[in-house]
Every structure is written in C-alpha cells, then in structure tokens.
Amino acid sequence: MKSLLSVQSHVAHGYVGGRAATFPLQYLGWDVDNINTVNFSNHTGYGHFQGSAIPEPELIKLFQGLNQIGCSYDVVVLGYIPSAELIDVVASEVAALKKSNPSTRYVCDTVMGDQGHLYVNNSCVDAYRKLLSTKIADVITPNQFELELLYGKPIDSEKLLRDAIAYMHDTYGVDHVVISSLDASVLNLQELQLICCAVSSRFKERSQEQSQLQVFLVPEIKSYFTGVGDLFTALLADKLFTNNGNLVLAVNQVLTIMSNVLKLTHQLGIKEFTQHYGEDSCERLAEGRMNDGESMRFFELRIIQAREFYDYSGAGEFSAIEISN
C-alpha cells in the first residue's frame, strides 16, 4: 500500500491545496493522511474568504502524534503553509520524521507567489530557505518567481536559470528540480502562447555528475485557474514514484494529464457560466473579467469529473528539449 502525508491548506469549497491533491492521489491508490495548515471557507481567488490557520502547538501535536501512532509514509508532500512560524514548525517536525524513516521521499512545493506577486508574508521566503537548507527535500516544484525568491536573484537568461537550478541541487540537496512554469523568453524562445516547464535531476549520491536541463513547451495555462500547481505537484509525486524516479517521463505524464484536466475545466466552465448568465455573457469572459467572485466558481478545477485522466501511464504528449551547455 502506498502511503502519503499531505501537509497543505484546506478549503470547504473549491479545489486548491489538499482539496486539489487528495482525491486524485486517493483515486490513484494512495492512502493519504492530511494535515490541514489552514481551514478556510474558500480560496483567495474569490476576493474574500473566512477561516484561520492552524495554531503552532496544534501543528506540532499532529506531527508528533502521527509518529507516536506509528504512521510512516512513502512520500510526504508539503504545500501551502501560511506563515514563517508554521514553516519553521514543519521544518523541524519533518526533520524528526525523516530521522525515523530515512526512506521517505519529500516533495516540497514552496508556495509563495506567482508572476512577481508574493501571496505570503515576506518572512516566509527565509523560512523556506532555512527549511530547504536542512536538505530535507528530494523534489521541489517552484514556479519561476519562487525559484527567483529561493535563489535570491531575478532569472532572465539561460545562464542564470542554470545557475539557479545548480544552486538548488548543491545548496538544498534536491534530487529533482521542476520549474513548473517559466517564461519562454528566459530561454530566448519566442514562441507565443507557450510556457516552459524546466526539469533537472541530479542525485545526491552521484553529485559530481552534471545535471541535464530539459525543457517542455506547453500551451499556456490560463491564469484564472486556481490550484493548478497543487494538482501538478500531487500528480508529480505519484508519477515519480510509479516511474522509479524517471523525472522526464513523470513530468511528461503530469503535463499530459494537466492539459486534459484544464481543457475539461475550461469547457465545462464556459458551458455552465453561459447557462447561468445567458449566451451573450461570453463576452464578459472574453473581456478577461475572470477571477471575480461571480465567475470563479464556474472555473474551479474539475477534480472529480476529470478522474479518468489521472491514471495515464503513457509516454506523454509533449517532448522534452535538451538545453545543452
């Protein structure tokens, strides 16, 4: 039985954080335990939300309790953690977990922001750097902005991208670095409407080997979907595990699934939105009035309806381009 601990946000409505990750993983046969870092009514995409973060002592107790009752995991996925204090707690508790179970793999999604916009407190950046410098994470999945925060510099060239990834491997001891979304201009790729997903593996036990940077070009994912990164990381945890650490294949499968999930989400969203607001309401969507409370609920990821896509195990619909030195 494959077991996984998911440490992420909980929302009553909508599919982000643990709610985007848990069902697909369960559907793929994972026994998923959940620690909820926050308990919110909904995600921030609606413009308003209610609820609270878990108090630190409670978070400590849950981690220690899981250890006491003898839970051990094949994989731990760390997602949204709302404050530096809580990231610190997770760092020390996870270190203790790893000590008692060295074989557990840690997938860390350093959720901090996107496209130049930070959606956690500034102090979280240092807290994540501190967490990663304990070399706990085997896999990280930052987007370009998060990579820049972790590296400490803006990345606008292939050279800087390479340096930043090498830094993740060296300083943070990460085996697999996946930059879930990267501006194509960084690699001087002028393709419109395409976004890059860059991947690099270098195993701790073979650290003298050069890592290879490979890039997937995927049609741009419309930004009004929320929870995309959380689903991406969850599926990656599964596919890396089932493909014995073959990162390129795993990412290709994940991107293929994501593309199907997003297509379905888009189709059903448009259909239900126009059913609700009338045929001519499409113009509103075209005007880009997304991400308001009214339209948001029609464009929640279709986590349930997309369930048949999750166990895709083919070669992947995309091709990786090797970026040579």
């Binding site: 009553a12 919110f40 909904n42």
Partner: peptide, 19 residues
C-alpha cells in the same frame, strides 16, 4: 487533536454563504 468550536464552524459556513 482538537475539536473545532462553534464560532469556527459558523465562520466557515458564513464564508460559503458569501460565495
């Protein structure tokens, strides 16, 4: 672990009502 209190539950359901 902890019980949630009545206020926490009301807050979440009130949040849903705003959606």
């Amino acid at each position: 672990g902890e019980k949630n209190d009545g206020r926490t539950i009301s807050t979440i359901i009130e949040g849903l009502k705003k959606l």
